[in-house]
Nucleic acid binder design. Structure first.
Lengths: 136, 136
DNA sequence: AATTAATACCACCTTTAAGTAGTAATTAAA
DNA sequence: TTTAATTACTACTTAAAGGTGGTATTAATT
């Protein structure tokens, strides 16, 4: 029951970029301050650029910035990139579809926390969460 | 955000054993009815036996049965075996300890679903959940 | 006593996530 | 125009999860 390293890193990266609010931040700086292996970080940045959450400037003095307003980027958008989000009807025990008519042993108990998690991921945006963080 | 295959399988296996309530069920039967690869299932059974949730009888006519009352086996006990449970202060974003004084960007939003999940895992027992299941 | 049907054990193979290495392409500054 | 600093791309390596194979051990049945 946890997020993948890629998702964790990506959320931290985007939070930090939001907080800094500089015109451009480069990969070396991000890697240093967030303590994420440089080469792995650049791989994640490429994914964020491809997903249109971030835009990059190449060459000397280049770097990264958000491509949309921070308030428009949801945590769910980030998780989607790494296939780490909560799928609608997916069964917690991995037995195909799970609904009121065909319930796995944990279906009932799972409903409430699952809905809260979905809500959390879909409604939390970068602007809001970056204000709350006291560490990145 | 999901359980490991081992945890999923283990919960299903134990639920099925609880529902059947036979004196002994063997690995072949479990593998067939639950559609779990035989060799992988036997590996999981060994873990369940070592964790004292299940006891085995070897030799011809042998098999498995619960070692305690179903009401005494919590979902959390099962997840613990496969290191798949929710650790107390573990940060959702993987930045060490997370508490009210040192908060990651998702700390506040994570508290409520996290508590519900912990409650669900700690309070759900095999007897209760096996009654609710309409599939295994 | 031999056979058969079961679990236990150990080592291996496969797939996916995580992380690393090197080089090409780009652009600002010297 | 050269150099330095940056992202982009491709391929590889490592670690962990998921899964398989073969044999030893056990115990009831024949």
């Amino acid at each position: 029951m946890k997020l993948s390293n890629s998702s964790q890193y990506a959320i931290r990266i985007l939070t930090y970029i939001t907080i800094q609010n500089e015109s451009l931040i480069n990969a070396f700086k991000l890697s240093q301050t967030l303590q994420i292996p440089y080469k792995f970080l650049t791989k994640i940045m490429t994914a964020l650029v491809k997903a249109d959450l971030v835009e990059s400037t190449r060459g000397r003095e280049g770097g990264f910035r958000l491509k949309k307003e921070a308030s428009k980027i949801k945590v769910d958008d980030i998780l989607n990139i790494f296939n780490d989000n909560m799928k609608k009807e997916e069964c917690l025990l991995g037995i195909g579809q799970c609904d009121t008519h065909c319930k796995c042993a944990l279906h009932d108990q799972w409903m409430e926390p699952k809905l809260l998690l979905q809500k959390m991921f879909r409604e939390s945006n970068l602007e809001a969460i970056s204000k709350k963080a006291t560490k990145v």
